[in-house]
Design a protein around this nucleic acid. Sequence first.
DNA 1: CTTCACACGTGATAC
DNA 2: TGTATCACGTGTGAA
Lengths: 216, 216
Amino acid sequence: MSMGSAPSYFSKQIGFPQRYGIGQVNSIYSKKFTKSLSTAEAKVFSAKKHSESERRRRMRINSQYAALRKILPNLIKMDKASVLAETVRQVRELKKVVTDIDAACRGSGSECVIPSGVNKLSLEKCEGKQEGLVKATFSCEDRAGLISDMTRELRSRKGKVVKAEMVTVGGRTKIVLWVKGLGAGSEGIVSLKKALNKVIVDRPSIIQKLHLPKRL
Amino acid sequence: MSMGSAPSYFSKQIGFPQRYGIGQVNSIYSKKFTKSLSTAEAKVFSAKKHSESERRRRMRINSQYAALRKILPNLIKMDKASVLAETVRQVRELKKVVTDIDAACRGSGSECVIPSGVNKLSLEKCEGKQEGLVKATFSCEDRAGLISDMTRELRSRKGKVVKAEMVTVGGRTKIVLWVKGLGAGSEGIVSLKKALNKVIVDRPSIIQKLHLPKRL
DNA sequence: CTTCACACGTGATAC
DNA sequence: TGTATCACGTGTGAA
């Protein structure tokens, strides 16, 4: 048997499960040798179940191979070993790109327009311009309700956003806020810092995972 | 036989090739049945070669699995199907991050500090300041000799670099040059543009491949 | 004819 | 216990 197939990648659709009547013996001797036949039957039944289970496992794995063949750009050889090798290569390359970008963003202070992989928050008073204007810069994981949480915290502290910038990349967000109305002293800034730290919750994305220890 | 092994991931080291004397029949009948025995021998030899070839193929594939298990962060289940599924998931995620970053960099003009995935070159005259000062901004693939090529082209056109900025990320580079000494007219800029276009050679990186059509 | 890549069924093994 | 995963050898079609 062993219906082997050629290297026909993409859409495997192999024959069909090949049902050939598991529990039916259809023999006139079945009455006589019920015991022995049932054990033999049990054996072949078990074997069949095993082989079908194994087939399902193969299909599960092969469907992932098909997915990889689709999403990897510029695949030359389509056999399993080559696909996996190219996958390893590209994952390494992509990780390097992302970590490099992240390092570049972490290196430069708050001047990078791309959100950093680490959650950071910095506040500074804007001197010489309007009185009590504060610039708040922070990167964090993007999430549903981030903006509303932020505005709620600001509103409860009488802060008014006079200008805002926002960049979201790959699930992470960088936000720059210019806030006024917090009062002249430094207690306004401390309060704002507390509020924004509450907003920045840590839900690790893939960018952060790349910096995490391996088997956490 | 079929020396199966349990799910012991990492460092497979399976027994050893199991040589049990391929070409030696050691029978007293070997003289009599030379022909038939040699065919049988050929058969078992062929089978052995086949099974060893298949073993090599398995090892090739499994070594790639081992590599994937190492480089993927936060792997929970280590079986093949789960590893592949997580690989697909993370490749998609990484690609999204990179394409998002690239889109963000292509969106903003020359103000992004991160190099874009597409090769671009833009020149502008700096008015009001020093006479004949030109700002040149371009992104391209980083390569050996990029800087020396650039300076050689500039030198041959009497250009003097008064200031330069450079960012390299994941194999791509963004460079901003402030050049003077090209002359007052627009022929200086045209000449510089030609020169820099010569320098920016196109060696597609993974960032660019992500924008390319699938089977180029 | 040989080589290569594959699917298959099976025994071993771990949980 | 049953139900997973795994490596193995084999048959088979394509290059």
